[in-house]
Simulated scan of single mutants.
Amino acid sequence: MTLEIFKAKEELRNLIDSYASLGDEKKIAAVMDLFTADINYKVYMNNFLVSDVSGRENMEKDFNKHASEVKTYFTLNGQHQVEINGNNANGVSFSQLKMVRENDGKDILTDYSVKYEDTYVLQDGKWLIKNRIGYFFIIESRVLNN
């Protein structure tokens, strides 16, 4: 592995981790800076397409709406595998994502096991997410007993 490839892999891992950290903090405008202007983001839950959003402006509206409905996000990232080809790359990453929402005065925790398939591009010296498909495979909800 060349030093250039090693550096690119580290930058791409930092991109994925920044997406999770900034999202957890609900810093939506900062999350948008991680996407290309023509981002396409699809979400599948139990093999059904539930969201297909294109363009950074539409993504920001969608993310802000979602964040307004969630009290707390907590994300743990797992493995991240990438293949780099010049200024383009493809990657697969895995995450455990927890969301707390309030329903009828009770906190409801939903735990998601997610696989992301990404396409990345290097623009102006910075790696960005161009396409993202999130596969939410395992979804479990329960009332939190605080």
Rank of each mutant, 00 (worst) to 15 (best):
H80C: 07
M45Q: 13
A8G: 05
F6E: 08
D52F: 04
N46L: 13
N88R: 13
L76T: 14
N87F: 03
N58G: 01
K7Q: 11
S18R: 14
A37Y: 04
L15M: 06
V53G: 02
A67C: 05
F74H: 15
Y19L: 12
T72F: 05
Q81M: 10
F74N: 15
M59L: 05
M32N: 11
I16P: 00
M32H: 09
S54F: 01
K65A: 08
K26H: 14
N47C: 11
M59P: 01
V70Y: 02
I16K: 11
N14R: 11
A8T: 07
N64A: 05
A29F: 05
N77Y: 07
V31Q: 11
S51R: 10
A37H: 08
N85R: 10
D33V: 09
L76P: 02
A30G: 11
N40R: 15
T72L: 03
M59Y: 00
L22S: 04
D33I: 08
I28L: 12
S18I: 15
A67W: 04
N58T: 00
A30H: 11
I5G: 01
D38H: 06
F74P: 07
T75C: 14
L49Q: 11
G86V: 12
K9I: 00
A29T: 13
Y44S: 07
E11S: 06
V43I: 15
A29Y: 07
L12K: 05
V70I: 10
S51L: 09
Y19T: 06
K42A: 09
N47Q: 10
Y41A: 13
G78Y: 13
V31N: 08
F48L: 13
N58Q: 02
K71C: 02
K9R: 10
I28F: 07
D33H: 13
N46R: 13
S51W: 05
D38C: 05
F35D: 03
F6M: 03
E4T: 03
F74S: 15
V31P: 05
T36F: 06
L12D: 08
H66D: 12
K9L: 04
E4P: 00
K61P: 01
Y44K: 06
S68D: 10
Y19A: 07
F74G: 15
K26Y: 12
A20Y: 13
A30C: 12
L15Y: 03
V31Y: 09
N40M: 13
L49P: 04
S68W: 00
E83S: 13
A8W: 03
S18V: 14
K27H: 15
F48W: 03
T72C: 02
M45G: 07
N58K: 01
E57T: 01
H80M: 03
A8Y: 03
N85L: 09
E69C: 06
V31G: 08
I16A: 10
E60F: 01
V53D: 04
N85W: 02
R13T: 09
L22H: 05
E60C: 02
N87M: 09
Q81H: 08
I84G: 02
